[in-house]
Amino acid sequence: MISPFPKSSSKPGEGHIVVNLAPNKVSTLESITYQYPLKLISPSSSSANKGSVLVFLLSYGGGLVGGDRVNLSVDVQSDAKLSIVTQGYTKVFPSITPDIVTRQKLNVNIRRGAALCLLPDPVQPFERSVYEQIQIFKLDSGASLYLLDWVTQGRTARGENWSLTHWVGRNEVWASTEGGDAKSQLLVRDAIILDGAAGPTRSQTLRESMHGQAIIGTLVLRGPMTKRLGQFFLTEFAALPRLGARDFRSNEAREKEDAVPRSLFDDWRATRLSQEKDLGILWSAADVRGCIVVKFGAPTVEAGRSWIGSMLVQEGSIERDFGEQALICVR
């Protein structure tokens, strides 16, 4: 007997999100589908007063078990806005053998005037994990992307410190043309390869090569909505104190200058700079082919999180355009 129900075409780990702009100018979820081990949740409240549709990217059991495949595709239709967040680290559990690769793939299309804000929690690869994450973003002209990709040293409580077997994280930003992608052009390919098994060189372990960093991250910004935030990072990078510079002011002059009341922003910057110095946060920002690429590293996960959070909250445009819900993973 033929089943009266439509056949499910979904494969394990597959998911699809479509967001469009409703006639009342509010971003709405057109469809959302997923299969184990992927889980997607969108709080049902309207996005009307929040700016964007919010989707939680989850997995059953809070992590990916060796060999899991997640394959998520996302379409953000013209002028719609979507924020994707997670609920805690994406844990990558160990693989029994190195040839069992845990994979997460993300394919995103962002149409003209639309925007995706993807600020998840960091990925936490456990000891002996083998992970490959490939995220491909195709942006029509006038589309915007905020992408944060970060990875931690593992579970420090269990003595893990870059104890993973293999890690590949690749992010590609493409400029596409509406209709076909025959003329798509690769703008930026950010790829990190961590080889825990063989080490980056024969004489050095992965842990040594990380040089005390507990977390490393990349923020990529592209498109008209990100202009102000991108400029903010470039300006703050240019304003960093020079390494090896000396303060030639006399004590008196210094006290006098410190006594002059500063603006709230100058206060924030001074506090942030002293934290960067004390905590050992390293970062850089550059404009690469029309994308702003920010790289950062920190000796503790929390230091890294609070640094990026402080930058994004202080500048404020994500909160304004997507609602504070988009920032929950960086606070």
Binding site: V168, A191, I193, P200, I216, G244, L282, W283, F296
Partner: peptide
Amino acid sequence: VEDAGQRVPVMDLWVGRHELLYS
């Protein structure tokens, strides 16, 4: 070619922050 990338992430930070050296 598609798999080219960075093996030593902290290298990007050192090279990128060369601009911050005083001398």
